[in-house]
Structure formats: C-alpha cells, structure tokens
Amino acid sequence: MSGLTPFLSAMGAVIWKDLRAEWRSREVISAMLVFALLVILIFNFALDLQPNVRAGISSGVLWVTLAFAGTLGLNRSMAVEKDRGCLDGLLLAPVDRAAIYLGKAFANLLFMLLVALIVLPVYGILYNTNLIIPGLLLVIFLGSEGYVAVGTLLASMAVQARTRDILLPILLFPVAVPVVVSAVKATGGFLAGLAWEEIQPWFTLLVVYDVIFTSVAFMVFDSVVEE
C-alpha cells in the first residue's frame, strides 16, 4: 500500500497536468475534433450510398475516423512533452515511470472519448443510425482504450525522432490492426442488431487485446524512454 500511494499520486499529477494544460490551450481536442468531423463529412459525401449499403460500412467509417483523430491527438500529446524538454522533467522525477505512462495514457483516453462523445451524435444524424446502444458504447470505450494504450507507448518512442509525425502512424497502424478490426466487427454487429453470440468473439478479442497491450506497454515504457 505504501508503494501504491506515490504511484497513484504521480499518475494523478500527470493526468491533472494534461487536463489542466488542455483546458487552457484546447490544442489536442480541437485538432482531433475538427479532423474527425471533416473525415465524417468527407466520407458522407464521397460514399453517396443507399441506406442499406451505408449501414454495412458505417462501422468502418466510424473507426477509421476515431483511429486517425486518435493518432493526431497522441502525436500532439507527446510533442508537448518533448518541445520544451518536459519529457526530461518527467523522467527526472523519482517515481515509477509506469505511473507516467498510465497518467499520459489515461489523459489521452479521456481526450479520445470526449471526441467520440461529440462525433457520435453527428455521425448518427449523417448516417441515420442509432448509436445509443450500451454494448456499442462499451465497444467504443474498449477500442479507444486499446488504441490509446499502444499508441501512447509508440508515441513516446516516435517523439524522440525528427520525423515523429510520420513515424507514429507507421508504427501504430500495423500494431493496432487487431483492435481496429475487432472494434469494427463488434460495432457492425451492434448496429446490425446481431445476437450477442455472434458479437462475442470480437468483443472477447478486444478485451484480450486491451489487457495484453496495456500490460506490455506498462512494463516496457521505462526501457522505451531510456536514452
């Protein structure tokens, strides 16, 4: 318990700092949100489809939008740490570096969920889809968690490079394929009103991915940020 308190305190400090700074600048959220809304609009006009065809691809459109917007946010969130040398400031603190990772990942998850919260109603209107399904909202949470868990780790690697903006998607997209595919399939299942038995395998894969990648990222973050 005595080891847990400083860990949670450091994690809480990182979350507080990220939320506070974002509240002032609105740099990450606004970039993610504008990008996400533009992508949805572009898809809406580009894929001028019949309603029944549209229903079949809308889960893919939703996740492509969230994944691209999420990458933008992850990049920006780590760039803020690197640009003023703040990453060194974090690494100099006498805390378990896993607490820094979890703090950053939690803040990034909140940003991604907030963007999803705003994007979903717009998406629902444009694609004429009811998205207020508890199972679907859980899939969005789990999909975002998995994406952010591995994304925060890879962003902390990519941020060291000069080509960080290009490097992050190149590193992240291949690794995040399982989470995006399972999230798309589970979302599609809920939107099509399939039985739970048909959705369950994708849902389980999503949970397994989240557990494995969050644990791995938690364990290797220290080595990744070490010079």
């Binding site: 305190s9 450091a10 809480g12 400090a13 507080w16 700092k17 506070r20 700074a21 974002e22 002032r24 600048s25 740099e27 803020v80 003023r84 040398g85 703040c86 060194d88 400031g89 974090l90 100099l92 603190a93 006498p94 805390v95």
Partner: peptide, 23 residues
C-alpha cells in the same frame, strides 16, 4: 538545462505544484 522543462499552458505555481506532487 537549456530548456526550461516547464509547461507553457500552466501558470508558474501550477508548474511547481505539478513537480511538487511528482517529488
């Protein structure tokens, strides 16, 4: 270091409060 290791979008006392909690 050459760089301030401070967050531009936090105030002076908020920066110190953050690092104070980390230490």
């Amino acid at each position: 270091s050459h760089q301030p290791l401070l967050y531009g979008d936090l105030s002076a006392e908020e920066n110190l409060r953050f690092y104070g909690r980390m230490y």
